[in-house]
């Protein structure tokens, strides 16, 4: 892990405050993700993990503090400009478009200018053969697992290097969860930086290089994967795993 820390973080959040309308949901979040890392945000429902991701994308009401993407300050940027810094965001609700076919959904996100090449359509189909079989189906007619593959697959094409994956294992059959775990490992080998929000501790823990735990809109614990065992009592208390 040490070698990462000399470089500019892919994502650096400092004292992030966030609001949805009147309600204050993030109370000073601090976290850093280095290029090539897989980092997991753990926490109970409502602890602010999804809000943190949405705040990075500029999708919450108001935000204060600092969010740097590859060293560029984004706190005052509109969403589309933040995305064009090389972020691929897979929202919790998947957001598959019903007026588009499976393939149109996959091809919808435009390539990011100046970013890396991204995966080809064939590589994505190779990873998720189901999507190729169903490419002409209406997006929302796919099964839950297929929709999840589609929601993740479509952000791999654009050249985005920092992936924000919100609860991708939620509500899916074990065999699909395993496929997604394989995918995360493949992405790591290819050099992607991944931030995951996960409820499913047993899915997330073996994949992560580092883990953050949130509660009440702040980070309350932070440790590396090899400290996992010694931290289990604390995690038990915080998450009930």
């Amino acid at each position: 892990m040490r070698e990462y820390k000399s470089s500019v973080p892919a994502l650096e959040i400092e004292d992030l405050q966030g609001w949805y309308g009147e309600s204050h949901v993030l109370h000073g979040v601090n976290l850093k993700v280095y290029p090539g890392e897989v980092v997991t945000l753990l926490g109970r429902n409502g602890s602010g993990r999804t809000s943190t991701m949405r705040a990075v994308m500029g999708l919450i009401g108001a935000r204060k503090g600092s969010i740097k993407v590859n060293g560029v300050e984004t706190i005052n940027m509109p969403t589309y400009k933040i995305a064009n810094l090389g972020i691929g965001y897979c929202p919790e609700e998947r957001a598959i478009f019903s007026s588009l076919s499976c393939e149109e959904n996959l091809l919808l996100p435009p390539k990011i200018r100046g970013a890396g090449k991204g995966m080809s359509q064939d590589e994505i189909y190779e990873m998720f053969p189901n999507l190729q079989e169903r490419k002409h189906s209406q997006g929302t007619r796919l099964s839950g697992g297929e929709q999840q593959m589609l929601a993740v697959g479509r952000i791999l094409r654009t050249g985005a290097n920092l992936l924000l994956l919100d609860e991708i294992s939620e509500g899916l059959a074990p065999v699909i969860v395993q496929a997604l775990a394989r995918m995360i490992r493949t992405l790591k080998e290819k050099g992607y930086t991944v931030v995951m929000v996960e409820q499913n501790f047993h899915f997330a823990a073996p994949l992560a290089d580092r883990l953050y735990v949130m509660e009440h809109g702040v980070i309350v614990e932070h440790f590396e994967a090899n400290e996992l065992e010694t931290k289990m009592p604390v995690l038990n208390e915080l998450l009930g795993v």
Binding site: M57, N84, F97, P109
Partner: peptide, 22 residues
């Protein structure tokens, strides 16, 4: 046109793909 159709359903997510929705 596909941006337009997708934007009709969920403009925020289309914008999060880097499309200048405004």
């Amino acid at each position: 046109g596909s941006y337009l159709r997708a934007g009709t359903e969920n403009p925020k997510i289309v914008e999060s793909f880097g499309v200048n929705v405004p």
